[in-house]
Structure formats: C-alpha cells, structure tokens
Design a protein around this nucleic acid. Sequence first.
DNA 1: GTAGGGTTAG
Length: 619
Amino acid sequence: MYKQIINIKTQTPKIIIRTITTTTLTTCITSLQTYANQTNLTQGQKLHSHMIINGFLASPLSVTSLINMYSKCNHIFDAYSVFNMSNEPNVFAYNAIIAGFIYNDMLKPAIRVYEKMRGEGVNVDRYTVPCVVKAFSGAGDVFGLKRVHGLVFKVGVNDDMFVGSSFVHGYLKFGMVEEGYKVFEELPERDVVLWNAMINGYAQIGEVDNALECLRKLRGDGCVMSRFTVTGVLSVLTLKGDVWNGKGVHGLVTKMGYFSGVAVCNALIDMYGKCKSFRDALDIFEVMAVKDIYSWNSIIGVHQQSGDHEGTLKLFDRMLRDGSFCPDLVTVTTVLPACSHLAALRHGKEIHGYMITKGLGNHNGEDRADDTYINNAVMDMYGKCGSMKEAQLVFDHMGGKDSASWNIMIMGYAMQGFGNEALDVFSKMCETNMIPDEVTFVGILSACSHSGLVKKGQEFLSQMKSKYKVIPTVEHYTCVIDMLGRAGLLKEAYGLISEMPIEANSVMWRAFLAACRVHGNGKLAEIAVRKVVELEPEHCGSYVLMSNVYGATGRYEEVFDVRDNMRQQNVKKTLGCSWIEFRDGVHVFGTGDRAHPAEELIYNELRSLYMTMGLSQTT
DNA sequence: GTAGGGTTAG
C-alpha cells in the first residue's frame, strides 16, 4: 500500500490533489507507525515530505504520528520541530513529544514540555501521567512526582494500571515504600507489570525479602512471569549472593525461551560475576546471540571483580577494535580502576583521551554527579600511576568538585612524597568551605608520614577531633605510628600504641615492626612480631617476619621453631609479585620467576646492577 | 495517533 503512495511523488500535483483521500491519509499514518523504528527513517521522511506537499500537516493525527516516527528513529529534534510547527498541539501531540523526549533519554526537556502543557491549559490524561512520572523519577525530582500524584485524583485516572505501576516504580525508586505500597493496594487489579514494578522496586532499594515475597504472591495469583520478572529476581539473588537459586532461574530461563532476551542474559552474567562464578558468566557471554553495551560492560565488570586487571584492559581493547559498541561512562568507570591497580599509565592516558574526544565527563555547566565521579576516577588513576601533573590538570578543569575530588588529590600528593603540596591542597579545600572527612585525614597523615613532617602530623592528629570534629580511627593512628616509626621515634610510637583509645590491629603492629627492623630495635621488634602473629595467625607473612626478626638477633633456635610451626599449620608462603608497563603491555614478575620470554636479558641486567651496587647476587 | 515494569560502575 505505501508503495502506491510513494509513487504518487512522481506524478503531477494536479493528479495528486485528485488522488489524495481520507483513505490515503490513514494509510500514511499507518505506514508512519511501521516506520517508527530505527531502521526505516528514510521511508518515514519520504512520507513526511508527501504530507507537507499535500497539506496533511493540518491534521492533528499526522502531527502525532510524525512526532512518534521521528522520536522512535532517534531524531528527536525533527520530532520537536514538527511539534513546534503544529497549530495549537492537542493532548495527543503533547503526549507523543513528552514520550519522545523520554525515549531519547531527555528527561528535563520532557518535564519542560509537560509544564508548558499545563500552562497552556491542555488537559492531562492517562497517557500523559506514566510518561511524566518516569521523567520526574528519572530526574530525581520527588516533589514533581508528588505534584503529579495529586493531579491524578483530580483528573480521575487513579484507577488506571499504567498510571498506578508508574507510581509504584517511582515511589520505590525514592525508597518511599509506604507511598508505593499504598498505590499498589488501591489498584483494582494486579497484573504482571504491576508485580514487576514491586519486585524491581524493592530490588533497587535492597529490600530483598520484600521482593521475594512479591515473587511468591505473583505466582500465587496465577500470574505468568515475564522477562522483566526474571531480571528483577536475578538482581535480588545477586544482592543476596544466592548463586544456587540463581542457577535455578538460569534453568527456568532456558526452559521458557527467555534466553533470547539480551537483558536477561546480561542479568545472568552480572549474577554469576558478582557470585564469583566467573566461568559461568564467561560461558553465557560467549554463547549469547545478541549483545548490547550492557553485555560488554557486564563482562568487563566480571573481569574487574575477579581481580583480572589485565583481562579487563584486554577486553576494553577488544571493544574498541570491534567497533560495534562505543565505550560509555560505565565502561570507562569499570576500566579506569584496572589501570590504577596496574599503574598502567599509558592505558589510562588512552582512556582519558577517549573520554575527551567523546565528551565523557564533561557536560559544560550542567552539574552532573556522573561527571564528578568519572573525573575523580581519572585523577585517581593519574595519582596512582605517579602523574600528579595530569591529576592536577584534570582537577583544575573539572566542575562540581566533591570531597572525594579533594581527597584524591591530597592522597595522590601524599603517596608520591609531595607532603607540602598535599597540605596546600588541604588548605585550599578548607578555604572553599569543603568539610574535611575521615578520608581527608588519612591523606593528610600519610602525607606527613611520607615526607617526614612529624610535628605537623602530630598537630593534625590532636586537632582532628577538636577542630574538625572527625574522630580518629585505627587507620589514622596507623599513619601516625608509621610516621613516628619512619622518623626513628620508636619509643614515642610505642607510647602512642599503648595510650590510644582504640585497640591496635595487625596492620599497625606491622608498620611498627617494619620501623623497629629499620632502626635496629630487636626488643621492640619481638613485642611487635608476637602481636602480629597473635592477630593474624593465618597470614603467612607473619611467620616470615617472625623468623626474620629472630634471625636478625641471632636466635636461630627460634627461627627453626617458627619454620616448624609453619609446616605443621600448613602455612604456605605466597609469592611476591611486581609488574611494569612497557611498550605493548603489562609484564608481571613473581619471586624467582623465570617464565618471561626475555628472562636471560633481564637476569643479566640484574647481575650487572648487583655488581655496580657492590652486592653479591642472591637470586 | 499518544502510555506502565529490566540488566552494567562507584
């Protein structure tokens, strides 16, 4: 039928006017609905030009259909210009453009149009409400949501299932369980969508038991589960770490044929990943027929969670090379910590470069929490990779700094040994009225520790509570113990451990022990090492330390005792490991490891270094 | 002609 219409274009205008009838108009509209998907834009545009030529645009029906067609083809600006050109748009046109903006992830414009609609006195109906609710809840505007809810009773659409489920979803998203439940209770029936809104809503705010209770009731009601139910249930099981029932759902998914749903598979990948069943997650990813950006992001997340940072970077490269999916904010946030862990500066820089070209993390002027978060991750990466200059550049240029941004800079400078720079950042942080928190002081105290600023460090520790209202934790004391120990003030450090109001942990004793060994205090070292073993008997390093301490003071009998003890308790020494980023990738070396292809060259170089340093070779 | 419920990072 539409072929006939398109052929009209080649005929003369006179014939067209005679040919166009109401039937043709209806056909145009029907065809527009067919073309309202992302692949048929050209056909839709052809119809649009016909409608212009033949004066169809006066029809409110065509306006709505065109808006819908352009929206679903992701040409929202064309949809909006059709809307703007129409004369006094009716409720259909308003609903279509609001829905269009939401379809294209533009929530704020959707809200603006809705407000215009109210201002113009166009009546809101049961189609308008679910869209607007979605926009308000998506934009985090709880007051907007409540205003619409008031309106719903006035308009008399409070019994509508679409309206009701959108509010259930909206309220639960804000953690307003009572309000959500009230809407749920007052609805005339309970369909699968409503149940899903309850299950997913509870899942999102972590109310696992309520979500599972809804699942039971849904089945008790004789409702048939849908794909949406499956993803909701999977996210609950993921939260519970319940891989056993997760496997059950996996079986059900296969049986019901839901496996063809991308989101269902993505949720399965996520569930297996978070439950540490990495093999199962990888298997699903490989056999999935259709993948989307979630699938990639999820599988990258699986590698990141399994601690396989190299694998994470390799997958990111695969994603870039493959070209089917553009890494987005989530991808970058997942991959950057892998660079930080590996101190893989080159990869980190590449990702940062990619972000700049794609405008990720930079929505000029719009204060987005996501932008702050991602820029913090970039700064952290540069800091951990030792490039404070770059970290500082990102910091200077980013808008919307939060306390984490300041803390990352302080910690970055501290770790690289730039104590005074760290303290400068701290002063500026206080000048901008940003309130320092626990993390800030961990940074400040490590800065003092790494740069030997003993007096300053002691001052900060005493001012923390009185001046900044932050109560020192074991981490803060550990920094100070470390600081005193490095400066050789062993007695002061020991005194602080005895006097402080909290119990010392193994990390603290370990830091103290290291200082005792460096400064050659065997007596205090013995006290420390006993504490370390007492607090962490399962940690292999404790025994190694103990035998080293006894060895250093010449007490070889004790050394044998410790080694014997280790054998009896079946404690094995885990291998030390280091890595370096060089040209084509990250190279990992274990203790005594001879697996590297350039092993001979490396060990020759090592031997000559030992010679230069006047040391005998020990490895 | 217009509408509700889903999965990924921290």
